[in-house]
Amino acid sequence: MTSNANNNEKQPKEYDLVLGNQQQPQSGDLVLGGIAGVKKRLRSQSLNEKIAVIEQLEKYGVEGFDILIDIGKKEDDIQIKKLVFKEIIKYGDRGVNFVIEHLFHSSLWIQKAAIEILIDCPQEKAKLALRGNTNSVSLYIKRGTERLNKKDYQGAIDDFSEVLDYIFEYTDLYNRRAFCYQQLQQYQLAINDLSRIITIASNSNSLHGVYYNRGNCYLSLKEYKKAIAD
């Protein structure tokens, strides 16, 4: 009986710390050791370790922002660079400004990484920075087409408009945007785009479909004479 009692006393209680517990911190936990622990883990050669730490830096406020800036300036790995851009725009204008600076980086890959982050950023500053940037055109067209295929017509219109605002004779995009307007029953806007195509490509022999679509829009607006003419 005495032996059993002694053994029971040696068992840890539910509120005791178990020595030697090597349980790894969960992804949502703060890094042990605070900022010093963060910096130590960032010196790791493991890419996954660095990624895990970078994803938690927002929890450290201004100190986390400063570390992101430092990583963004020194790190050459494109995956890390893009993750830094993604995390740093959460800090508002200062973060967005940092990413915008990289639109002019000597590396085309880093420029593209910055564009991919800014194109999803809701801030007007990000959109203004991308306007006129030739590297952003293909990404807007790609995303707009993906949205069109998913029947996200307003999203597609927004993306196509970003391109058409400074490339005025892109007839294929006018045609895609006109289709989106038709699906949203915004027939006059569709007519405007289709008319723009006719003006740009007035000497083309392949405008039958454009006239047909514009005629259908006029029909929907009960402008029968114009519909018949088209």
Rank of each mutant, 00 (worst) to 15 (best):
A126S: 07
A126C: 02
A126V: 03
K127D: 03
K127P: 02
L128K: 15
A129V: 06
A129H: 00
A129M: 04
L130N: 08
L130K: 04
R131G: 06
G132V: 04
T134S: 12
N135T: 00
N135L: 15
S136N: 04
S136R: 01
S136M: 05
S136K: 04
S136H: 04
S136E: 06
V137G: 00
V137E: 06
V137K: 05
V137P: 01
V137A: 03
S138Q: 12
S138I: 10
S138E: 12
L139A: 01
L139Q: 06
L139T: 01
L139Y: 10
L139C: 00
Y140G: 01
I141V: 13
I141Y: 00
R143S: 09
R143I: 08
G144M: 09
G144E: 06
G144P: 07
G144W: 03
G144R: 05
G144I: 07
T145R: 10
R147T: 03
L148M: 15
L148K: 15
N149E: 15
N149Q: 15
K151P: 05
K151C: 12
K151V: 11
D152C: 02
D152P: 00
Y153K: 07
Y153P: 07
Y153A: 10
Q154R: 14
Q154W: 09
G155T: 13
A156V: 10
A156I: 11
I157F: 07
I157K: 04
D158K: 14
D158N: 15
D159P: 14
D159L: 14
